[in-house]
């Protein structure tokens, strides 16, 4: 969390205060961006772009919004843009090379795969982008439906449906691992 004082100083152009904000949120932002973009390098680029845009827009930020909500709104925009750009350039890859070396779990090694985080990450990475984003924002980053409505412009019922469908897919993919 950052303090109001840090935000106020960063608004006025205090680079050290801004650096404290970056330190506070960078790892979390990379976590979300990696979930969205499925690539560490692309995630770090998107996070940098988000902080650049955030710092530029910071003078307009008013504290009626939670700071992390506002930052993630910018970050989600950057991730969507990055995904679209990767698709346009035909460079969209489903997984990091590291993940590609991991075979999808077969029937005989389901339990073993359960112990591996890669199976879970792969299942999340295979969610459709529009479900993945909402699942990550809601379940992993802890934003409320109200915040996500304002963040994405998507209605609450549609958001709930995306979360539910994402959970259904993940259960289908991973339940065998859990109970196998």
């Amino acid at each position: 969390m950052v303090t109001s004082s840090q935000v106020a100083r960063a608004k006025l152009g205090d680079a050290e205060a801004f650096a404290q904000i970056v330190r506070a949120y960078h790892a979390r932002c990379v976590r979300f961006a990696r979930g969205m973009l499925r690539d560490q390098g692309a995630a770090e680029d998107a996070v940098q772009e988000a902080f650049v845009r955030m710092y530029r827009a910071l003078p307009r930020y008013e504290e009626r919004d939670r700071f992390d909500y506002w930052l993630f709104r910018i970050l989600a925009n950057c991730c969507r843009t990055a995904n679209a750009s990767l698709e346009r350039r035909g460079e969209q890859q489903l997984f990091d090379e590291e993940w590609d070396r991991i075979e999808r779990p077969g029937a005989l090694d389901l339990v073993a795969r359960l112990e591996s985080s890669d199976a879970i990450r792969r299942a999340v990475a295979e969610l459709p982008e529009h479900q993945r984003e909402i699942f990550l924002l809601f379940h992993v980053e802890g934003f409320s439906y109200e915040e996500m409505e304002r963040m994405t412009g998507i209605g609450r019922s549609a958001l709930k449906m995306r979360v539910k469908r994402a959970c259904d897919i993940l259960r289908e993919r991973l339940e065998g691992l859990l109970h196998g």
Partner: peptide, 9 residues
């Protein structure tokens, strides 16, 4: 990240 943002601003 900070340097890029500060410079852009």
């Amino acid at each position: 990240v900070v340097a890029a943002a500060v410079q852009a601003r």
